[in-house]
Amino acid sequence: MKQTLLEIKDLCVKAEDKEILKGINLKINKGEIHVIMGPNGSGKTTTANAILNNPAYTKTNGTINFEGTDITNSKTDEIARNGVFMSFQLPEEIPGVSVTNFLKYAKNKATGEPVKIFKFKQELKQYMEELNMNSNNMERSLNVGFSGGEKKKNEILQMLVLNPKLAILDETDSGLDVDAIKTVSKGIEMFKNDDNAILIITHNTKILHSLKVDYVHVLVNGKIVKTGEQELANEIEANGYEQYKHKA
């Protein structure tokens, strides 16, 4: 029996008084890669934000459990410290805080242990090389002046450093060129093991070519209308979402 990491039940979510999610159910076990696909505005990003309990979104129904603990109303930082990570579609810029200092601080928060700076920097440098990142970026302000691709890679870097139990990748592939997508996929493979899980949120299938995916969920108009395996993604790539729209 596989161990359940995340379980979402009957989740309804509002944003700015508009109902976005209308009863989502989702179960993610350790060792699995899940994909949520759907057209623009179907509620994909809302799902990610709801798991991290972004105060800009209001839950009107349902529960979210993580490793058996109810995190529906937990604070974002607690959820993060429990081992949930989210790669942002539009990562925020933090002037004056370097990538190194930020990650060191976040790592310290995540593990509750002091971070040894020399070893930490070595580790960081290694990851950056793997991700084809310029190691000069280590001392630059977090995301400030980074290109779109650099920002996304930086998110993957953070995922590798913080080593969460569940990584939610919200449109990490959008706006990236072929090489950058390969790099991001490589980062995901480096991260993946039997004890963690990944939830990929995307509206296209490019990133899925190089990953072995366990489940694909189709999200349309706030509801999961179909769940299948990798072939479902291929099928959507060929035919689009049109046929699912009436089901929502």
């Binding site: 974002t76 930082d77 993060a80 990562p91 925020e92 004056g96 601080y105 995540a110 302000s141 953070q158």
Partner: peptide, 26 residues
């Protein structure tokens, strides 16, 4: 949004704000 971003990395709201302010003063 910025506070949420930092909190999603495990920083408490206070820590997130303090980090942003220190960055502002950097």
């Amino acid at each position: 949004k910025t506070i949420f971003y930092l909190m999603s990395r495990g920083l408490s709201e206070e820590d997130a704000k303090a980090m942003i302010v220190r960055g502002f003063a950097y």
